[in-house]
Design a protein around this nucleic acid. Structure first.
Lengths: 307, 307
DNA sequence: TTGTAGGCGTTATCAA
DNA sequence: TTGATAACGCCTACAA
């Protein structure tokens, strides 16, 4: 009965009837919703990735619930449970805690999880990250090639995966070029602006002074730039600087800042793509470990040293 | 039977039983979840407010689903419907479209809506915003007091509430001081970085040149700073500049940038607080219109002109 | 106090 | 093809 169908369609329009997605999810165990969990909303690096994830998922009809955990391990678990409460079909997250327990539990419930940015041991799932080691290697190498012998590094927390990798790159390139690493030139921060600010000043207390400083994330780069502005240092004459992550920032400071650029768009797109594959029960290549390349932009904040 | 109860508790622990929040929501028509909708994730001004909203709601046991609509009116409606699908108990949003239809429909379903940042006509709901008019008034007034006669403004889209208000303040302070407004010094942008960049350059083509430029949001301020870096202009000797919104930015550029600072924390907190009130069916003072004050930070990018 | 049945709005199953 | 019915997991009301 076509007539019947049409009448129903008309009625749906008139009463603007909407299916109750909760009831549907309850029945089908699928919500067509994906959970995305990041450390913090107030960080353009994270939110930019989220934006790109969303684009990929939306095209396939999946909506996204975005959560942050404010760099708080307790909140991380809480938000993860919140996403489960909402019966998300899959999760893309940047983990903070190294604990594999909860994540493995989720995976065992047949909810695919994609890790981004950071890796966790003992978790069997897809992961999309950046080649942090070589990102650092290449950045510091450019400084070495330009004749710098004392290169300071402001690195993240010792127990954070990306920080470990970025430090490894710094150390390995020193080794490869037969250079000593002066431990006093390695400063551990917490990836926040304030620590970039303070550690930069600490590096200026080291004797003999570094001729170049490499800062390994966006927030700490901000802090370092602020610290620079408060000194009388001329960049790059007195000190060469390489920062991290934010393209706009590089153009805003003067002289223009050299930076390591992470492929935020690609991270988001690839993560979304893999998750969509898993949601279609396509397990080919599982567990995928995608390691994306960074780009190094050398601008005016780096100079060569005559020897 | 205390023993019984304990046994049940123990069993709950052992089987790590979890209530199905979907089923509960389906039955009770309450999800203990609030929807938050912002124009864009890639904007620290928006996401910072979100973060503060979340804090307020979490304390009262409400979780948050955060969505963005990428400045796209179609997506705005879509995401709003997504939030309704998730049976959110209330919504806090920054509207883009002026259309009152959908929002009124939501309100009529007894789901409280709090508007932030922007107002909409013909919608009867609480709203938390900033005194944009006087924010501009005060900023431009400081320039006038310092002897500036030709003050350029880079303002947002003509059809956006905040842009209208910020322009009104610019015009009113000119009137109050008996100054002509040169329409060539008013440039309409789209609140994005690129337009700040381009319009800044356009202002440098106006004859006679402005001695000061006031940029009315964060993204466009970024663009303006980049444009400055590409000229030979000395700030503030050749040109005074006042920007908008981002405190860190003000410290990063050199000379330090004068800015209008919006109370992001307060916006988020107040919006959360009002929504919580409404969720408790407390309708006192409805509809509340909270107009928060901005702060003006005069730094090194502004100078006095001798007359 | 404790237990049980019915219904929230879907979808899936099975019979007609 | 169509239509009736059970079940998803929870809450609530009412009965025992």
């Amino acid at each position: 009965m076509d007539k019947n169908k049409q009448a129903i369609e008309a009625a749906i329009q008139k009463l603007d009837f909407k299916v109750n997605e909760m009831a549907r999810a309850l029945k089908t165990n699928r919500s067509m919703t994906v959970g995305v969990l990041i450390p913090n909303f107030e960080n353009i690096f994270f939110t930019s990735i989220v934006s790109n994830i969303e684009n990929g998922l939306l095209q396939e009809g999946y909506s996204t619930i975005v959560c942050d955990y404010k760099e708080n391990p307790l909140l991380e678990a809480e938000k993860l449970n919140f996403l489960l409460d909402k019966m998300v079909d899959g999760i893309i997250m940047m983990p903070l805690t190294d604990s594999d327990e909860l994540i493995n539990e989720i995976i065992s419930k047949d909810i695919p999880v994609i890790l981004i940015d950071r890796m966790i041991n003992n978790v069997n799932c897809d992961v999309v990250l950046v080649d942090n080691l070589n990102a650092s290697y290449n950045a510091v190498e450019q400084l070495i090639i330009r004749g710098h012998k004392r290169i300071g590094i402001i690195v993240g927390p010792e127990d954070v995966y990306t920080a470990q990798e970025r430090l490894k790159g710094y150390i390995r390139v020193h080794e490869d070029y037969g250079r000593e690493v002066d431990p006093r030139l390695i400063k551990y921060g917490d990836y926040q602006m304030q620590s970039g600010y303070e550690l930069f000043q600490e590096l200026l207390q080291v004797d003999p002074l570094p001729t170049a400083i490499y800062v390994t994330n966006y927030e700490m780069t901000l802090g370092a730039v602020i610290a620079i502005n408060e000194t009388n240092l001329k960049i790059p004459e007195d000190l060469s600087v390489i920062g991290f992550d934010n393209l706009a920032l590089a153009r805003i400071v003067k002289p223009s800042l050299s930076i390591v650029v992470q492929p935020m768009q690609q991270i988001g797109e690839v993560a979304a793509q893999i998750l969509l594959k898993r949601l279609k029960k396509d397990l080919s290549g599982f567990p995928a470990v995608v390691r994306l390349k960074t780009e190094l932009l050398i601008r005016d904040s780096v100079r060569s040293i005559e020897t």
